[in-house]
Design a binder for these strands. Structure first.
Lengths: 113, 113
DNA sequence: ATATCATATGAACAGATAAACATATGAATT
DNA sequence: AATTCATATGTTTATCTGTTCATATGATAT
């Protein structure tokens, strides 16, 4: 199967009832996480390479606290992972879905000139 | 090209600078639109078939005004289109991106059990 | 032309959310 | 064991967002 989204797409097309309220909330909650400029900047920064909190903070010119708060949200939603390296914590994009979702949003916006 | 997102995905992979601030905002604004339960319900309802405002309102058990407000946001962001039919206005999903973005989000959530 | 019906819009309110500031945590190094 | 340094967390505040209520619009049908 060439495309990662094919499975869910087929599934959606066969839906004849509104999906479960809980599932709907989970999906919209996921998109909500992408719907903030700071988090989007973090994701784009991590797109290129994994980074520590401090480097993210420097890179985006924002308070370390603000970055940490947003990283927590990203991590809770499994969009980033982290590991310790010496005294610092390194964050990275967690899986291929993030790439695909970002790419899709990117493309939609670009097509509107 | 089999997959609609390939182009943007390749593009993302080649990025060596943070995208334009404006573009970042546009992308996160797009996801913000998906990040609300009511709008998600509307999109899922329209996924199956186009509907008038009243039918959407009945279907979701919400005030007509609330639905109209959200439809405006969806339309502004080119996620739905509309046409007049007699006295009513019919709304429908506007393009294939919506399907793909929804499918991607759906799939991400499903994979987390 | 007027009345009617569906939809859109404006304003007000309540709840959610992100940033800043201050402070706590906790692993690593000494 | 104590200290240090990076990161995390709690709290407050300002802003944003969605809903409701009331009303406006505007095309259709009489």
């Amino acid at each position: 199967m060439a495309c990662g989204h094919k499975h869910a797409e087929e599934m959606l097309k066969r839906l004849d009832t509104m999906p479960d309220e809980v599932l709907l909330c989970e999906v919209s909650d996921l998109f909500k996480v992408f719907g903030d400029t700071t988090r989007m900047k973090i994701l784009f920064a991590l797109f290129k390479s994994e980074l520590s909190v401090n480097k993210l903070s420097d890179h985006l010119g924002m308070e370390q606290s603000a970055i940490s708060h947003q990283l927590k949200i990203l991590k809770t939603n499994n969009l980033v992972g982290s590991r310790r390296e010496g005294k610092t914590i390194i964050y990275f994009l967690s899986d291929d879905h993030v790439h695909q979702i970002l790419a899709q949003g990117f493309e939609h916006v670009l097509e509107e000139h």
